[in-house]
Design a protein around this nucleic acid. Sequence first.
DNA 1: TGTACATCAGTGAACGCGCGTTCACTGATGTAC
DNA 2: TGTACATCAGTGAACGCGCGTTCACTGATGTAC
Lengths: 247, 247
Amino acid sequence: VFSKENSQTKAMSAPRNARDRVRDEVTREILEVAAAHLAEEGAAALSLRSIARDLGMVPSALYRYFNGRDALLSALILRAYASLADEAEKAADLAAGVPEASDGDRWTAVPSAMREWAQARPHEWGLIFGSPVPGYQAPEDTVVPYGRIATALARPVADALGEGRLRPSADEAASPEFLAVALAPVREGLLPNAPLTTVERVVQAWCTLIGCISLELFGHWRNTVLDPGLFFGQTVARLGDEIGLHR
Amino acid sequence: VFSKENSQTKAMSAPRNARDRVRDEVTREILEVAAAHLAEEGAAALSLRSIARDLGMVPSALYRYFNGRDALLSALILRAYASLADEAEKAADLAAGVPEASDGDRWTAVPSAMREWAQARPHEWGLIFGSPVPGYQAPEDTVVPYGRIATALARPVADALGEGRLRPSADEAASPEFLAVALAPVREGLLPNAPLTTVERVVQAWCTLIGCISLELFGHWRNTVLDPGLFFGQTVARLGDEIGLHR
DNA sequence: TGTACATCAGTGAACGCGCGTTCACTGATGTAC
DNA sequence: TGTACATCAGTGAACGCGCGTTCACTGATGTAC
């Protein structure tokens, strides 16, 4: 089960000879075609045969690259995570590099990037945040890219906090003690030394973001929110306010 | 395409003779078995043949009741909507009937009911709020139950507002004018005469709720939020605060 | 109340489909000496 | 540099599978007179 994946990752990391180089290229082509199918038909309709057809290969040839459909789908999930994480980090970096931007402006960057990414690839968003495809629950490897996204989002908050620019919240004591335990991983991983209410609000902002993007993407704004982009912007701005970032 | 569904709804509404009564019963049985399969295997794995097998019928017999797989799945989606809406309304009614409850307490009722409903039937939650099953986008009929859920959620807010108990928010002017247009349907439908910030906050609360429940349900709290129930409660309470409900 | 006909639930066989996966194979590319 | 062998990508045929859907049918239930 794992031998192919091992050789695959090995080949991916250090292509030495022509054979290995061509293998990487074909692997990439397969993933690209698969992603295209995913984008058009969704995960359920993904089939090895149709991918092989599009590549001008015979179905069984794909088994040189992936141990069957499950492995391919897992690779696609990982690819989606990595792509979103890249986009989030890029946006965070870019925002951090603008000296005249306020903390509030910087806060906006990652959510907007996430929304745009999602709109460009709704099915990949669904792969990450939609109902899990039965049998293909997220592999352990998604922990790292998931953390990258969260880190990128929290970065403006962490920076503002570290540099003493975070507006103290009025209700420091509003979070019960035991919440600290429940949110310890986030505090330690993303916002060291932050007040508990800040941690809490950031995680809540995460919920709001994911909910907002998903609701829009999955068609729930019909007859409800007439201008999704406007509403999203307003929501993100307010979240930044509530966290205590200066406009 | 629609003849069967017509006869179905007709029979459902007014069963006259024994034949019609038995038809309703079988229809219900089919839906129940289908829902059970859905709960165990997910929407993708739903098959007419396996449902028929469980019912001791021959696959083609199902066509007396539903025009094929698509129609069955649509019925299941509607059923899920209706069930969630029922639950939400029940919770709202119950909360409204407790005289000593605060507005904040009442506000908590529907979100908690939704979360419990979702946890009992993750796949049905996914049918409503997860990635749309390709080809089975929500029928027009989902508008009504969707509205019922929203109404139930907003009810404590509308009541508090109507009875002058809503704490006025500090930032009345924080919402731009054009947001009023984008949120007009909600304001008119759920919160007539409410300040725009209230409408805005309620819709945001909706995002947060859906996001929070989905993230928990779809397995994204691993290594992040160690006590999902606690966090959910805290989040809902804070949302009520921010809307301006008294504890 | 009894008969003649219409309606309709459910049967059983059959259709064609696309799927994932296996296997022995061919021929090209790489490696060791 | 040249030969002998190992590695590996891709072929082509075949497997068995469960699926949705159709169709002509049987027999029971309901309806009209």
